[in-house]
Design a protein around this nucleic acid. Structure first.
Length: 510
DNA sequence: AGTCCAGCATTTGCTGTGGA
DNA sequence: TCCACAGCAAATGCTGGACT
């Protein structure tokens, strides 16, 4: 077979591309550490346009081993370059003008910033970064964000052709890598399709074989870096339940299977703690997976992109992680805030650095009272430290935590989380590209019964609470029945951008 | 055969308590 | 005010009897 020239690599997956291995075909020996590897990751960022989301991204990088991260859907308005506190470099290309679509980018690890040869932003969906590696070779990394499957086939075809020609244009680089969101559906591998790795484009989802044609025309190979890792565990669970419902199988049985450990959300940990999800449970248990001669351990929890995902959906340990992350973030601005006299400036700094770290991914939490009080407690402790007081002094001066809040001018973390949830709910329900998260949010199970016992708080409970109220177009709750609009379910209301904004009880001015 | 409801089992998570 | 702990209220499904 031909020598692989294109691979997409992701955390814990893919193959090392090193200078040492480039000339000959010897297998990497010994050390499982990948010190010479180039780790190329890809992230569909949703947005990194604002200062706040950029610092959220910056904080979520801690603990992730990467060299280059290809970004898609950054939605930046202009071409932006900036350097993070740790020296990492962020490059953002502009989005589609007039629309909130696209925008690509790169994050380059501090140790590689001096190796950047150049970069080009070709379109809001395509960019190239060129790096020097070793003494004489170089690598071109393409970040791509393909049109989603509801775009016309001509549009998608044109994009893939453009990727192929840009790839061709980077010929002088010894290594070329395409990474990003290709928006192709995959199925099992077909006979003879050796370029595609274990998976292949789904003939039903992609009749024109976009991925396969790209691989053939560029003579490249596809690595096993599909979206499995990024699939939310909850979505996995819903997948199984939904499948059971479709097949008219008893949901109870499906749930029993889940709890018996034949669940699909098995994550496997490799020797250095990196998690890889396995989809074995959906089909059937496959053979043990070995890496560097060791059988991988299965686990029901793993950390993906800085947040912990658990099989049972509990977030206790994630709350502790958030607490640590918030204190770490606070530590990095402490030197500055301790010197700042201006309370407004100080609170702005805190809200843009510490609050996002504390509330990272909180839009996907169910908000029970215990979660709320834990977050409040943690935030108050940070707040006291910020304004230089402690419980003892407060007690002596008879000051309450609301007095402290008046002095610190910080944003209330619960309000912040609730707004994030509201925004996220609207985003999920307005998506129409057939994702599981949208499907299961609206899915009503005809014969699903909640188990006996007090039902746990659900994700949507805190939203249903206010969103089922009668509404008017102006967003005011009216008493008079003549002005009142007919009742609409919150999922319907969330689809209407304008109405949903008005119904946000935590929005501006309320 | 279907509906309603009290009583039971079960589970979550809220509240009160006491020490720091 | 925080934290750990214990006890218990609340909310749910299930069951079986009374009633239509």
């Amino acid at each position: 077979t031909a020598r692989p020239r294109c691979r997409t690599a992701q955390r814990g997956q893919g193959h090392p591309i090193t200078e040492q291995h480039s000339g000959h075909h010897t297998k990497p020996t010994g050390t499982p550490r990948h010190d010479n590897d180039l780790r190329i990751c890809t992230l569909n960022a949703r947005t990194v346009a604002s200062e706040c989301s950029q610092s959220t991204l910056e904080h979520s990088l801690t603990g992730i081993r990467y060299d280059v991260i290809c970004l898609q859907e950054t939605k930046s308005r202009t071409l932006t370059e900036r350097t993070f506190d740790d020296g990492a470099k962020l490059i953002l290309g502009p989005k589609v003008e007039g629309k909130n679509i696209g925008g690509i980018g790169f994050i380059i690890h501090p140790r590689l910033t001096s190796s950047i040869i150049s970069f080009s932003v070709i379109s809001p969906r395509l960019g190239v970064l060129r790096l020097r590696i070793g003494r004489s070779s170089s690598i071109a990394i393409l970040t791509v964000y393909a049109p989603t499957s509801n775009a016309t086939i001509e549009e998608r075809q044109a994009f893939f052709n453009e990727v192929a020609s840009v790839y061709e244009g980077e010929k002088k680089h010894f290594y070329r890598v395409i990474a990003g969101d290709l928006n192709v559906r995959v199925g099992p591998r077909r006979d003879g399709a050796f370029r595609t790795g274990p998976f292949h484009t789904d003939p039903q989802g992609d009749p024109d074989d976009l991925l396969f044609n790209l691989l053939s025309s560029t003579r490249s190979f596809h690595g096993n870096s599909l979206s499995f890792v990024s699939r939310d565990i909850k979505e996995h669970r819903s997948t199984v339940l939904l499948r059971a419902a479709e097949a008219r199988r008893s949901l109870k049985k499906a749930k029993q299977e889940l709890s018996k450990g034949r669940s699909p959300m098995e994550a496997v940990l490799d020797s250095d703690g990196t998690a890889i999800t396995s989809r074995a449970g959906i089909e059937e248990r496959g053979p043990d997976i070995a890496l560097h001669g060791e059988t991988l351990v299965e686990t029901d929890a793993y950390v993906y992109l800085g947040r912990e995902l658990r099989g049972d959906g509990s977030i206790d340990t994630e709350l502790k992680r958030r607490k640590r992350a918030a204190w770490a973030a606070y530590g990095s601005i402490r030197e500055v805030t301790s010197m700042l006299k201006d309370a407004k400036l100080r609170s702005a700094l805190f809200d843009s650095h510490v609050l996002p770290a504390l509330c990272y991914a909180a839009e996907s939490w169910p908000l029970s009272n215990s979660v709320i009080s834990y977050m409040q407690t943690t935030h108050r402790a940070l707040e006291r430290s910020l304004i230089g007081t402690n419980l003892y002094t407060m007690h002596q001066k008879k000051r309450s935590s609301s007095d402290v809040r008046r002095q610190s001018l910080l944003t209330d973390p619960i309000r912040y989380i609730k707004r994030a949830k509201h925004r996220w709910a609207g985003h999920v329900l307005r998506r129409d590209d057939g994702r599981w998260s949208t499907t299961v949010t609206e899915w009503f199970a005809p014969d699903l019964r909640r188990p006996p016992g007090k039902p746990p708080v659900r994700w949507r409970d805190s939203i249903v609470e206010y969103a089922k109220m009668p509404y008017s177009v102006q967003g005011r709750i009216t008493r008079s029945s003549s002005q009142r609009q007919p009742y609409r379910h919150w999922t319907t209301r969330a689809r209407d951008r304008e109405e949903w904004r008005n119904c946000d009880p935590y929005g501006n001015g309320r």
